[in-house]
Amino acid sequence: MSFQSLGLSKPLLDAIQKMEYAEPYPIQSKAIPAILSGKDVQGNAQTGSGKTASFVLPILEMFHKKKESRNLHLKVLILVPTRELAMQISEVIDSFSEHLPIKVKNLAVFGGVPLNQQMVRLKNTEILVATPGRLLDMVSTNSIHLGKIEILVLDEADKMLDMGFQDEMADILRLIPAKRQNILFSATLDTKLDKIKSSVLHNPEIIEIEAEVQNLDLIKQTAYIVNAERKGPLLRHLIVSQNMVQVLVFVSSTRTADNVVAKLKKNGINASAIHSKKTQAARTEALSGFKKGKVNILVATDLASRGIDIQFLPFVINYELPRSPKDYVHRIGRTGRANSPGEAISLITLEEEPHFYIIQKKMGKRVEKIDAETLDFGF
């Protein structure tokens, strides 16, 4: 199946071609026609399955078809659990709408930045991507009105419930028109979603995409056995000796992230940290710089790494191991995407070896180990 067969217009197909998407993912091939037909849609698909494009593309197609009769008011509301996801979706909308003859203004709003900064940008916004709390902040100041919403998207609805947004979501539903198209995506089939689904969706088309097994064969995995105090020098040695220019480094705490970045910078390596204690401006700047290649090394905690989606990321380094084998696979799965090879490196202390053994057993794959004591770091 091709994108041309899904009912998308030439400006969107041009954007898809420019972004080098060869063919639609399963969630896209099923969701795009359903959304274009005006149906409510419930999609269950894992993170990274292409679900953002599966609702962004048909929504933009609807705007394109109505270009002669459009009024510049807020028509689409996309609710998300995190600021990183809000920014990512907004960037996707911008990318896909590049060739539309009449631009569609979208805006991402979230906490962590002054409310006034976002309020002044609301004028003529047609698609709003928002976290629930910040949206209600705007409603309470009468800076936004939701009375003309035509399409509601709940993205990662399961995570919104996990993060305690039940009451906020219920308040928002009372503020928007009852007659609207509804699109709900989640990564799980959690029964906690039943109540929100029953109150939002009307005779939905249900699309379930089974999680694909990560193709670990595309990822070269290596583990270096190293004393804790030599992890920093080893990390710098690997970056310099292998001429790594784009590396995502995972750590377990905000403090470690800052310490690792400080030592990298001290040794002339361009690095930034992204974690929950950074200001939103700092996180946005770090993520943008990394995606554009202005920052070579991005040091991230697992939670803050949501929204980091780079198709051809060559290196992932586990400076510290995650708590679960599932998180390990998710981390290293940031590389080896789009049938392109990648490399995942883990720095393991003797104390971490038993935990790493469990990770390998659960993963069903042995990882080559190298004794770092045999290496001359040159630092």
Rank of each mutant, 00 (worst) to 15 (best):
F110G: 06
G111L: 06
G112I: 04
G112F: 08
G112W: 11
V113Y: 09
V113W: 08
V113Q: 13
V113C: 07
P114N: 08
L115N: 12
L115F: 06
L115S: 13
N116D: 14
N116F: 13
N116A: 15
Q117T: 12
M119I: 15
V120N: 15
R121H: 14
L122W: 08
I127R: 10
I127V: 12
I127P: 09
L128Y: 07
L128T: 07
A130D: 05
A130E: 06
P132T: 13
G133I: 07
R134L: 00
L136A: 12
L136I: 15
L136H: 10
M138Y: 11
M138V: 12
S140F: 06
N142H: 14
S143Q: 14
S143L: 08
S143D: 06
H145Y: 12
K148N: 15
E150C: 02
E150K: 03
I151M: 04
L152G: 00
L152W: 06
V153N: 14
L154C: 06
L154A: 06
A157K: 03
A157G: 03
D158A: 04
K159I: 14
M160K: 07
M160L: 09
D162Y: 11
D162Q: 10
F165P: 07
D167Y: 14
E168A: 15
A170P: 06
D171G: 00
R174D: 15
R174G: 12
I176D: 02
I176L: 01
I176Y: 02
A178N: 12
K179Y: 10
R180G: 03
R180A: 02
Q181N: 05
Q181S: 03
N182Q: 07
S186P: 06
A187I: 08
T188Q: 05
T188D: 04
T188C: 04
L189Y: 07
T191I: 12
L193F: 05
L193Q: 01
I196T: 03
I196M: 05
I196R: 00
K197G: 01
S198A: 13
S198G: 05
L201Y: 11
N203H: 11
P204M: 02
P204S: 02
P204N: 00
E205D: 13
I206D: 14
I206W: 00
I206C: 09
I207Y: 02
E208V: 12
I209N: 01
I209A: 02
I209C: 00
E210Y: 09
E210F: 07
A211Y: 04
A211H: 08
E212F: 07
Q214L: 15
N215Q: 10
N215T: 00
D217I: 04
L218Q: 13
L218T: 08
L218D: 11
L218K: 15
I219W: 03
Q221S: 02
T222L: 11
T222Q: 10
A223L: 06
Y224R: 02
V226G: 03
N227M: 13
N227R: 10
A228M: 11
A228E: 14
E229Q: 09
G232C: 10
G232Y: 07
P233H: 03
L235H: 03
H237K: 03
L238H: 03
L238W: 05
I239E: 02
I239Q: 00
